[in-house]
């Protein structure tokens, strides 16, 4: 039985890092416990996806554990009421609303450098023309990934397309009700988890 358990663990979890629960049981099971601690995780999804909800659920799970989290909201699209409805403790959330992508990167760098944050989410979801991801150099994500590793902070990047390149330890592609591993250091790509979400209430 122990040998079987070891075999299962070897197949599911990347070594050397702990895991933080994503707040979604199915996704936790898919990832062998949750998002890797101290790593850059890319959550990619178009308009017809649940990328933001996946990130907010991870933030909510972190605040439930008593951790402090940060949401760098470049598109200025964060809705506190629906996030609170999803279980996010707003008093433990640092919400930053930069006006440019450059400021968003600088703010993320600062927050990661401060240390002590359980999860930091950088929201780069938006129109292609407005976001201009080409503006973000790959060295920015290298620097942010290093900062996250030093601070042992799980760093989520929410975007409509891939932006972090090879610096992401895990890339998830979100659909309307499913999340798939697209690229990962430690997992085989293509594995999918079905997540059931409820619509936010009008209140």
């Amino acid at each position: 039985m122990v040998a079987e358990l070891r075999e299962r663990l070897r197949g599911t979890a990347p070594r050397g890092h702990g895991h933080l629960s994503t707040g979604l049981a199915a996704l936790d099971e898919l990832l062998g416990g949750g998002f890797p601690e101290g790593r850059l995780v890319e959550v990619v999804g178009g308009q017809a996806s649940c990328a933001t909800s996946v990130a907010v659920q991870a933030l909510a799970a972190a605040t439930r554990r008593g951790e402090v989290v940060a949401y760098i909201d470049w598109p200025d699209a964060f809705d506190p009421r629906s996030a609170a409805g999803a279980g996010l403790d707003l008093a433990r959330t640092l919400w930053v609303r930069p006006q440019t992508v450059k400021d968003a990167i600088a703010a993320t760098d600062l927050v990661l450098g401060a240390g002590g944050f359980g999860v930091v989410a950088l929201d780069l979801f938006g129109e292609k023309k407005k976001c201009n991801h080409d503006y973000i150099s790959s060295s920015s994500f290298l620097r942010l990934a290093r900062a996250a590793e030093r601070a042992k902070t799980t760093f989520l990047v929410i975007a409509a397309e891939h932006v972090a390149g090879t610096f992401a330890a895990l890339t998830l592609t979100c659909g309307r009700a499913c999340v798939a591993i697209e690229r990962s250091k430690g997992f085989s790509p293509g594995r999918t988890a079905r997540v059931d979400f409820r619509s936010p209430r009008i209140q």
């Binding site: 909800s53 598109p75 629906s82 409805g85 999803a86 619509s199 936010p200």
Partner: peptide, 11 residues
């Protein structure tokens, strides 16, 4: 009042 697995709204 929070609902488990509640979707988030992007404004």
């Amino acid at each position: 009042s929070s609902l488990p697995n509640s979707l988030s709204l992007r404004l």
